[in-house]
Write a protein that binds this DNA or RNA. Structure first.
Lengths: 211, 211
DNA sequence: GGTATATACTAACGGGCGTTAGTTAGTACA
DNA sequence: TGTACTAACTAACGCCCGTTAGTATATACC
């Protein structure tokens, strides 16, 4: 590049370094990927999309990430482990199935309202993980599913709940919470806590508990 | 191609026409696309994947389809219009909100159990439609959503249901049905009708109706 | 002031994508 | 037997993808 007039031509793309702009961080990239993946899906998002969202050229992303797949697995595994930890804490905080289910549903619904993008990516794109990341994600999901169902099955067995099928009750309750991420919007009239409270009471209704 | 020994070399790909195999139909392609899209998503599926599934080379698909996008829009619009028609019929068949909601939930859950692939594609990939197809899909979805919510709102207003929010009740009921497509399997112990019946009664419980 | 490091850039690679063009094999019918 | 049509094939196009290589700029520290 010997063109000395380069810095005079306005058609030239500006170089982020010469523009006095703060450098992009790994967190910025993570954030942009989150938004893009949630919006258009993992395969519907290119690295160029993500780079443009943070004001970089695509190859510059590699100063912050190790691959596109790694970005996805970070999002999915972070989210799943948080969700699972929340569930365990909710159950441990109470000593009867009614309060345990109410609290577990509350934190599950709440998380899907307060972390819409993360949970949408988990539910849409976790299947596109590969290798060890996929296994880890599947393990966490299975464990959460098993424990949630067991909570309901025990509640039925001990007479707290009335329902013909722990399996169906568990799927229904969990999946109605999951879908909160699909329609909830912060600027609406409802606060995440309102939604979570209503969903917790819906969960109890599903298993036959009426206040 | 002047190689006269071509028909002697076993490494050569067989030509479907010379193999005495029945020709592929448009329905075959539709079916294969359905399975692939449901499994790996629209962007996760290549035309080569679909072609291989029916035993063709990718360009041969164009004897049966007009484009990949068209294949998606056909699946999505077919499914949405069926689902919406089912809902209308269910409501029209009864004259009180309790029976209407029970029936509407029953057919909605049933369709998600009996047409898993179709409904999964709708819910995962309808957003990737473009132009008029996207608008049509959004319109149908919005109408269904509005009518479902209105059914619940009216039921609350007239004292049949008890629930603080028609919006939340409607989302919860609809989305728990949608998710049936995600876990239901035909070879399990439950029949689609069993699941639908249980979900219908769960829906009534959500709005405070106890049998 | 010199050097190391982090962060950015451009150029380019190999590969897969959806799609089009042009050709060939089998079938139905005059 | 000749002709038209359907359904298949191969070849190839232009484009975008994720990623790597190599280079430049700004900053932090000695």
């Amino acid at each position: 590049m010997k063109d000395v007039s380069a810095n005079l031509r306005p058609t030239r793309r500006i170089d982020r370094r010469s523009a006095g702009v703060a450098p992009v961080t790994g967190a910025d990239v993570y954030e942009a990927a989150l938004t893009a993946f949630a919006d258009r899906g993992y395969f519907g998002t290119s690295l160029k999309d993500i780079a443009n969202a943070v004001g970089l050229q695509a190859p510059s992303l590699y100063n912050h990430i190790s691959s596109k797949a790694d970005l996805l697995s970070e999002i999915v595994l972070d989210t799943l482990s948080t969700v699972f930890a929340d569930f365990e804490a909710a159950v441990a905080a109470h000593d009867n199935p009614v309060d345990q289910l109410r609290e577990a549903t509350y934190v599950y619904a709440l998380h899907h309202a307060t972390h819409r993008r993360e949970t949408m990516v988990v539910n849409q794109d976790a299947r596109h993980l590969e290798g060890k990341s996929l296994e880890q994600a599947q393990d966490m999901r299975r464990t959460h599913e098993r424990d949630f169902r067991r909570l309901i099955a025990d509640g039925i067995k001990d007479g707290y709940f009335q329902h013909p099928s722990p399996k169906l009750a568990s799927f229904a309750i969990r999946e109605m919470c999951v879908s909160v991420a699909r329609w909830f919007h912060d600027q609406g009239d409802l606060k995440p806590e309102d939604v979570a409270r209503t969903y917790a009471s819906q969960a109890l209704r599903v298993v036959g508990v009426t206040p």
